[in-house]
Design a protein around this nucleic acid. Structure first.
Lengths: 61, 61
DNA sequence: GATTCTATTGTTAGATG
DNA sequence: ACATCTAACAATAGAAT
């Protein structure tokens, strides 16, 4: 399996872009949660998207 | 060089915790910025900490 | 205490069910 | 459309400077 290097630019293909959004959102949420835990601090991430809008806080209010 | 697997918990050592905060904040900011670019959406990350407080938006206002 | 190094762990693009 | 797989790629813990 060979993956092409992805350049940092808007993904024009609709399904690829949505798939990337879903995967990366999940990864980001995890990392924000980890930072909150490791450092004992409050964090919040906001992502607006056509698919949905997400606002999440850590630690969970 | 052997690195122990880190468990997901508050890092009690002050300098380790601060170092982790700095490194992970940088990584998170990069990823938020990438998500904004890849998907053409607005994102925002907020991190409160004793060291500083950070709020950043993408794309840059 | 900031910066750099790198072994290791973690994330994810594209493929496949 | 959604879940899972995994090679390729990226982030980072701990050490060194």
């Amino acid at each position: 399996m060979i993956r092409k290097k992805v350049k940092l630019a808007y993904i024009t293909n609709d399904s690829s872009r949505k798939a990337t959004y879903k995967k990366r959102k999940k990864g980001l949420m995890k990392k924000m949660s980890e930072l909150s835990t490791y450092c004992g601090i409050d964090t919040c991430a906001i992502m607006y998207s056509p698919y949905e809008s997400e606002t999440e806080f850590w630690p969970s209010p």
